[in-house]
Write a protein that binds this DNA or RNA. Structure first.
Lengths: 234, 234
DNA sequence: ATAATAGTGTCTCTAAGACATTATATT
DNA sequence: AATATAATGTCTTAGAGACACTATTAT
């Protein structure tokens, strides 16, 4: 907190300080699959490897601001859903020096993320193993993440699953207007299992968080579903 | 996380680094009231004020280790339940310099905590206001916490409440052997409302986490309740 | 016996899953 | 009309709250 331990806090140089970074787990749902944004590292260590985007925290910015900056500078995106996840402080998690990282997790609908992929940025597919998760690249080959990024990602997926039922995270993965089927699909991808349609619809509609737009999907070869939007918080 | 932003990470002195501390919210339940451990600050700023215990993170210890050290050095206690809470990084949260703090929250049965109170340590009573919480000292007078400690405490109480139903936090507030009434009391104090006895008992017993000891309370003027213990995780 | 709490049985209500049925858009 | 999915109705099951009742211990 704020109370110097033994060394005088007034002389910050009197003792070694850990560095502080922010790492970002930006996830999306694309075609019934959970994906995560990866950046190709352009510096050592692990140069050329795919990793979670991150940055050092500047002396005059908050942690939230640093996370937003990563989103903006590394992915060219504005924050949709962004929340602090957990702080990782293993002593040798970075081979260079002592670095404590505050992990954030962010969510975006794939429609907005669709354009970010290029040589330096890509979306890895998240596969759940037992206890932790693994990442596959576009060709289906496993990606092994540097540092403790696999652990960070696992924590993020767990958090996403835990928040699914009592928060609005699912809506952050959908466009402004969406059908109940699309919403159910997002829930099913995150939960990793099929859900009962009538029960799901009733639960969602009874929650009072959905607002019918009056419009419907278009361009389909079958009955179009009604479009809903998230009711703005009262 | 680990990728230098613009400045070379190999030269840590090339840019200003935030300091990192750990603050601890140690809570207990005492006579139907939620309490928190406070330490009288022996240094500026806010010398003499009651505050959450904390320390700077050493270069060679993990965050968890720093939190355990606070518990040991500031309260003379071994960790019962200890978990990372949230990291607070407002730029001017400490008037001296930029300090990022990783807050932890810990739980103990009051029976173990009973002896820690002295001139420098005391237990403040937590009262829930709307949205945040306030702290009262032993005479019932409000304590105003320095820095952002009120916000940290509010976050801890929210987390405790959120974890009550799906985790074992309640048991960390009770001795090894306890009655169902005592367990219900802990739940009621944290939830802030009375609970239905038959439903509570059934829910707890059906959960399979409780193990009857065969023993009963003693020294009471009425029918003694059976003692249970938490079944060791399978 | 009395007092005081431990512990249980019953009824009701709500939420969700399974399953089947009806409705409606495009081709 | 055919097709594919949207949307709904019914039945059942599980869990929790309200309330009342029975059980057990010390004095």
């Amino acid at each position: 907190m704020s109370k110097p331990d033994t060394l005088p806090a007034q002389h910050p140089s009197a003792f070694e300080r850990p560095a502080v970074t922010v790492d970002l787990v930006l996830m999306t749902v694309r075609e019934r699959v959970l994906q995560v944004l990866l950046i190709q590292r352009d510096e050592e260590p692990f140069q050329g490897k795919w990793a979670l985007p991150g940055t050092f925290v500047r002396i005059d910015e908050t942690l939230d601001e640093a996370a937003q900056r990563v989103l903006r500078e590394k992915a060219g995106l504005a924050p949709a859903f962004l929340e602090q996840l957990y702080t990782f402080g293993a002593v040798h998690r970075d081979p260079r020096m002592r670095i404590i990282t505050v992990a954030y997790f962010a969510l975006m609908p794939f429609s907005i993320l669709a354009s970010v992929e290029n040589d330096e940025r890509s979306l890895g597919t998240i596969r759940k193993g037992d206890g932790n998760v693994t990442v596959l690249d576009f060709s289906g080959n496993p990606v092994d993440l540097p540092f403790d990024h696999a652990e960070i990602l696992t924590t993020a997926v767990e958090r996403l699953r835990a928040k699914l039922d009592w928060s609005d995270v699912a809506f952050a993965l959908l466009p402004d207007e969406f059908t109940l089927r699309e919403l159910q699909e997002v829930h099913e991808v995150i939960r990793g299992r099929a859900l009962n349609k009538p029960a799901f619809r009733k639960r969602m509609l009874d929650s009072g968080r959905l607002e019918p737009t009056g419009r419907r999907e278009a361009g389909l070869a079958f009955r179009p579903a009604e479009l809903y939007r998230l009711r703005r918080a009262a």
